[in-house]
């Protein structure tokens, strides 16, 4: 007989309250996680979308890509540069962008001199293919040759331009970053190696933003863990006399533990399922302008964490069950 299920059927209200709290906390955590991922994509989607490989910066740059200089003609990989700037559309409206130029490779889209490829978010600002855009540092104009997806850097849409236009605009032949698709890091003279994640951490704004959001998610997970534990503890404290009586009758602690694990699994599982559905619905309905991205992997990972926390919280109550004294329960019941 599944005692856990029987009790839940009989005391629906009590378990509904616990389930609602688990739902609200997990939903809030998924929402914040979605925002963290959205902001992360908005800040460094360009880098995240790059294939796995190694990034190299000049050793003297002290892990700051803006201070790094790499020879454009390096044969070890793709040399590229990113500079924040702006473009004026045909209506004279200024758009903040991150200019990117790279040596010819399959890593970034190829661009002809005088052309520009823009992140698709600028299409929503009214910019169209064929438009001529200007920049104060550029002698000519840039013709919009097309749009690309998921290319944002430092919360700005990326503008892919030809190296000649870049050099015209920023007056430099040097590149900042060397990227190699080799999975193993290679020691290059005067250069420091970074994995993709390590390189993302060198971007100060990304690091600070993600650190704050990670802290919030961590605290939410810790607080929810404590809440799970407290709720199951309180529920079991109320039943400690019953556990003692059942133990006196010969019901094993294992059966009682299975009872609370069943309850934890049903309550947490149902609440998580609902919060996943609600967050995925939000993911579909949220306006494009809101940086929100909740991947299936992230959702599953967080759900797994919540499930483990719920299991630990319920197991903590198992200690009470182990300690429940049949004799004490009988004597207390008789008074």
């Amino acid at each position: 007989m599944n005692l856990g299920w029987k009790e839940m059927k009989r005391n629906k209200g009590r378990f509904l309250i616990v389930g609602s709290i688990v739902f609200l906390i997990s939903f809030m955590t998924l929402m914040i996680s979605g925002l963290a991922n959205g902001l992360s994509k908005d800040n460094a989607g360009l880098i995240q979308a790059m294939p796995d490989g190694q990034f190299y910066l000049n050793e003297d740059a002290k892990e700051n890509y803006l201070l790094s200089t790499i020879d454009e003609g390096s044969e070890k990989g793709t040399a590229f540069s990113i500079q924040m700037g702006s473009l004026f559309d045909p209506n004279g409206k200024q758009q903040g962008v991150a200019f990117l130029t790279a040596s010819p490779s399959a890593v970034f889209p190829a661009v002809q001199k005088g052309d520009v490829l823009l992140d698709r978010s600028l299409a929503k600002e009214g910019i169209q293919i064929g438009d001529s855009l200007t920049n104060n540092g550029l002698s000519g104009t840039l013709r919009v040759a097309g749009f690309v997806d998921d290319s944002k850097f430092s919360h700005a849409p990326v503008a892919f331009i030809h190296s000649a236009d870049y050099e015209d605009m920023f007056q430099t032949n040097d590149r900042q970053i060397l990227f190699s698709m080799n999975s193993a890091a290679e020691q290059l003279d005067g250069l420091q190696t970074f994995s993709k994640n390590e390189f993302l951490q060198t971007i100060e704004s990304y690091k600070a933003e993600q650190l704050s959001l990670t802290m919030i998610i961590s605290f939410l997970v810790i607080i929810s863990g404590l809440l799970f534990g407290i709720f199951f503890y309180m529920m079991n404290m109320q039943k400690i006399g019953l556990y003692g009586i059942l133990k006196a009758m010969g019901v094993s602690s294992r059966t009682l533990l299975r009872m609370i694990w069943t309850q934890m699994a049903v309550v947490t599982g149902t609440a998580l399922l609902l919060s996943i559905l609600a967050s995925q619905l939000f993911n579909q309905l949220v306006p494009q302008e809101v940086p929100f991205h909740l991947s299936a992997a992230n959702t599953l990972w967080l759900s797994g964490v919540f499930f483990i926390i719920g299991f630990l919280g319920a197991s903590l109550s198992g200690v009470q069950i182990k300690k429940a004294e049949p004799l004490k329960a009988i004597q207390q019941g008789e008074n």
């Binding site: 009989r10 133990k247 019901v251 009988i330 019941g333």
Partner: peptide
């Protein structure tokens, strides 16, 4: 415990029935 479960029966002063069964 196993003997209590299989060979003994208990009736207490208060019935101590399981409230949700």
């Amino acid at each position: 415990r196993n003997i209590r479960a299989t060979q003994f029966g208990f009736v207490f002063q208060s019935a101590h029935l399981v409230p949700f069964l």
